[in-house]
Computed example of a mutant assay.
Amino acid sequence: MDAYTLDSGNGLAITVWTFGATLVEVNVPDRHGRTDNVVVRLPDLRSYEDPALNAYVGATVGRYCRCVTGGRIELDGTVHVLDRNDDGHHLHGGSLGFDKHVWRAEPQAFADRLVLRLRLHSPDGDQGYPGALDAEVRYEVDADSRLTIEFRATTTASTVVGLTNHAFWNLGGAGRTVDDHELTLNSTRYVGFDERLMPLVGPPRPVAGTPLDHTTPRRLRDSRIDNFFVLDDPEWAAEVVHRPSGRAMRVLTDQSGVGVYSGDHFRRPRAGLCLETGAWPDAPNRPDFPSVRLDPGQTYRHRTIHQFQTIGDVHV
């Protein structure tokens, strides 16, 4: 396994491991210029390798992020049974998903940005998925304090794809909870879940009048979230503010939804906040949800930007 650090030279620096194409550190200055890591980091590689300790922390998740009910998909009349790693269901790509592999890395330096490209080949039948898939994730930092994560994939046969990053964000730094963070979501609808966190039948539900309403800034100490939110428009997805440090993060994406998890069942409860942009839960089995099908000759693309600022630089 190798580790790469991309340092913008302007305060933002990230560290990525080839194991799981994992985002291990995102170092950002506070309002006084003091830098701290704002994503949860485990103590060592062994901890990342141990499923009992690692809840996909910082990892690239695939082939399909989130759940597939019953671990079953149907494409063109053929049923494919996926690895059932979640009590009879399929979750985050299976027992040996993309988070468990060492990716091939290629660093690149440009005049205005630094890029780390990581690639992984997933053979036909991997975790039950049809088609051989070539996946790529690009981490990019620039001088404007932006971290861009971009996913791409191509396939040799019709399949389903949904990649995401599973970082636990904490703008206050290590050792704290996210209770004193403020979260705003550009979403007035959410996908209803049953007790197993599988989508319920029917269209997305309004957040108005529910504890999931974050259309205006709300402290996370009042929220317990493990839901999927439908974005109202592509302009932005989420804003997170930590007033004690002055750090703020704005999330922009070309995806139509974001999974939000406040980490209540993490081994250090509420140590970080997940903002997983990308495919909708159980979309392979839900024709009423945006399609996640990928055919030969097509390229899957997914781009998300994390813009870091300090309070006072921008209205939040």
Score class of each variant (00 low, 15 high):
L96G: 10
R46V: 13
Y300G: 02
G131I: 08
N54M: 07
E74L: 03
D126M: 08
D36R: 12
G257A: 06
E150A: 12
G259Y: 07
M249V: 01
G128E: 06
R72K: 12
A237C: 04
R270N: 05
E276F: 04
V251E: 04
G77S: 02
P107C: 05
P43M: 04
L185H: 01
S291G: 03
R119N: 12
D87E: 09
T215V: 08
P234L: 10
L114S: 03
V68K: 04
D126E: 13
C67S: 14
R219E: 07
T22C: 06
F308P: 03
P281F: 07
D288Q: 12
A157P: 06
L133C: 14
R117L: 10
H80D: 08
T154K: 11
Q298R: 08
G246N: 09
R113A: 15
P296T: 07
T177H: 07
R63S: 11
D76G: 01
F151Q: 10
L133F: 06
R189I: 01
V201E: 12
T69R: 14
A59K: 11
T156W: 06
T304H: 05
L120C: 13
D36Y: 06
N27M: 15
G9F: 06
Y56M: 14
T154S: 13
P269S: 05
R104S: 14
A174K: 12
T304A: 14
D86R: 15
A153S: 08
G9M: 04
H315I: 09
N170T: 01
G33I: 04
E276Y: 03
P199C: 05
Q309M: 06
L220T: 01
N170G: 04
G202W: 14
D99V: 01
P290E: 04
I14C: 00
T78M: 06
D112S: 12
G88K: 01
A153Y: 05
L231F: 01
V191A: 03
V79D: 12
D7A: 07
W236P: 08
G246R: 09
T15K: 10
R286G: 02
V61R: 04
K100F: 06
T60H: 04
G202P: 10
V314A: 13
D44N: 15
N165C: 06
A109Q: 15
S8Y: 02
T188Q: 13
R113S: 13
D194M: 03
H90G: 02
H302K: 08
G257N: 07
Y56N: 14
A132Q: 07
R189Y: 06
G94D: 03
E182M: 08
D112G: 08
L12Y: 05
T253E: 01
L82Q: 00
T22F: 02
P199G: 03
